[in-house]
């Protein structure tokens, strides 16, 4: 969440933002690019944290890894889709670093619930047929927030 707020707030402070706004591309595209950049950073962190987690908690993460990766990917994309949008929104406000988690948490409730339940089921060794509902909802969450971000990013930054 800290990287999220840094990624946009720093650009506002340094004036990078104005340069980006001058680019001859749709602002929706800039939004997708920002989501992608945030997702890459978050995935990097995950590749470091996940092995550490396996070591410290003595879990076998190698066998369930093929099932775990889609959930992690979907969760990361959803987190970044909602997070980037709200970080752009909160960049207009005072006390934005404090405000962002307050704004973001309620929206992330469904995403967190589904990723938690999916990882829980995977670690307990459920067959993939029982994970379908969670995947569907994660895809829906990602699609809805990417769509909202793409469609409303003009409004967010237009000034």
């Amino acid at each position: 969440m800290l990287t999220l707020s840094r990624s946009l707030h720093r650009e506002r402070d340094r004036g990078t933002w104005e340069a980006l706004a001058l680019l001859p591309v749709d602002w929706g595209t800039i939004y997708f690019a920002k989501v992608a950049a945030n997702a890459v950073i978050l995935l990097l962190v995950e590749t470091i944290v996940l092995p550490l987690y396996a070591v410290f908690f003595n879990y076998d993460l190698v066998t369930p890894l093929p099932k775990l990766i889609p959930v992690l990917l979907l969760g990361t994309i959803g987190f970044c889709a909602a997070g980037t949008l709200l970080s752009a929104l909160s960049s207009h406000a005072r006390a934005r670093e404090i405000l962002l988690p307050i704004l973001l948490m309620p929206l992330l409730v469904p995403l967190l619930m589904m990723t938690l339940q999916a990882t829980h089921k995977i670690l307990l060794g459920f067959p993939s047929s029982e994970l379908l509902a969670e995947h569907e909802l994660l895809v829906a969450f990602d699609a809805i927030f990417l769509a909202i971000g793409w469609l409303t990013f003009d409004y967010v930054l237009g000034e």
Binding site: A82, L85, L86, L89, H92, A93, L103, P106, L107, L108, V109, P110, L111, M113, M114, Q117, K121, A133, E134, L137, A140, F141, I144, F145, I148, T152, Y155, V156
Partner: peptide
């Protein structure tokens, strides 16, 4: 006005998602 309207819309989108998440959660 602009920013808070956008947040109200984005926030409202999370509500049906929470509802569906809970319907799945209950099958657990």
């Amino acid at each position: 006005a602009r920013i808070s309207s956008l947040y109200a819309i984005a926030g409202f989108a999370a509500v049906p998602l929470t509802w569906f998440a809970h319907r799945i959660w209950n099958t657990f």
